[in-house]
């Protein structure tokens, strides 16, 4: 069995374990390449269906192509799509682009806070109604007890310590020092009331694996990842004001893989275009303990 098939099989196994064990399960879809691979794996695990909601946290500063792509796939693949947002912060303009917050605070408000209150059902969730062709407030406000997330251990330091099934308390906190043991494909599927479990099927994948798999499976991705003639493309996607394109002329998946393996990005960290990572030494980890993806 080749490496991609091996990675694929373990990820599918994990997705199926999550589905078998959690009644209120959802999957976070950031629209980026990793969580889109995750979405593809879910369709593979459940033979074309996604039997749990996909949740997107909309900061309303996402690059517009991302939202168009999200809604196009939602329609084409008939996805059970939900989004959540921090309405209060947006209304009062407590954001970095509005000049009223620094980058980390903005991330905390628009992502971490919105995520926490969307998962626990305290803030409205908007569900795509396929018949009406638009988003409507979801009547179901039950908290999600299992949350599938597409993080990879090679992304940055703190992620290399994650478990496939990682418990979080009511405040979404992650206790890095006291994690459950995990061996022989047996995962933590029992959890106390008020806590939930993050599920990480892509932990063992590298950035190159992700692109190789996108190529092998012909998975549709956002055009922002490719150079459209300007000599620039995005390597990692996020909010417009804080995510910058990199100089690259890779026009398709194959060229991206070649660039990653032997080209100029072979030894440069993937998130180097993400401004918030540089704000303070452990900023991302602090946010991560509080629930940021």
């Amino acid at each position: 069995m080749d490496q991609l098939t091996q990675l694929e099989s373990l990820s599918i196994h994990i997705l199926r374990e999550a589905y078998a064990n959690f009644r209120n399960l959802c999957m976070l879809w950031s629209i980026g390449k990793d969580s889109t691979v995750l979405l593809w794996l879910a369709r593979k695990a459940f033979y074309g269906h996604v039997p749990f909601p996909l949740v997107h946290i909309d900061t309303h500063f996402k690059i517009p192509e991302m939202i168009k792509y999200r809604d196009r796939l939602t329609r084409e693949w008939k996805l059970p799509m939900l989004y959540g947002e921090n309405k209060a912060a947006l209304n009062t303009k407590q954001t970095f682009p509005d000049g009223n917050a620094d980058r980390i605070t903005c991330c905390r408000l628009l992502k971490a806070e919105a995520l926490k209150n969307t998962l626990n059902g305290k803030w409205p969730r908007y569900r795509f109604n396929h018949k009406a062709g638009k988003y409507q407030v979801d009547e179901n406000t039950e908290a999600f007890t299992g949350v599938i997330v597409g993080v990879r251990s090679d992304e940055e330091g703190s992620r290399s310590k994650e478990r496939y099934f990682s418990p979080r308390d009511g405040e979404n906190s992650w206790d890095v020092g006291d994690q459950p043991p995990e061996f022989w494909n047996q995962f933590k599927t029992d959890f106390a009331p008020g806590t939930h479990v993050r599920v990480h099927p892509l932990l063992d994948w590298t950035e190159t694996n992700i692109w190789e798999y996108i190529e092998r499976e012909s998975i549709p991705t956002v055009s922002l990842y490719y150079d459209q003639g300007s000599g620039r493309r995005y390597r990692s996607l996020g909010c417009g004001p804080c995510t910058h394109p990199v100089e690259s002329t890779a026009k398709n998946v194959r060229e991206i893989i070649e660039e990653l393996q032997s080209g100029k990005f072979a030894n440069i960290a993937e998130r180097s275009g993400r401004a918030q990572d540089k704000e303070d030494g452990g900023g991302l980890e602090t946010l991560r303990r509080e629930g940021y993806m």
């Binding site: 251990s153 090679d154 940055e156 330091g157 703190s158 290399s160 310590k161 890095v176 020092g177 994690q179 063992d204 590298t206 030494g281 452990g282 980890e285």
Partner: peptide, 19 residues
């Protein structure tokens, strides 16, 4: 030792993976 609390203790607390 990518994590803060790990560095402060100077010991590995979890199984970290490197490629």
């Amino acid at each position: 030792d990518a994590l803060k609390d790990e560095q402060s203790q100077g010991i590995t607390i979890d199984a970290a993976r490197v490629f």
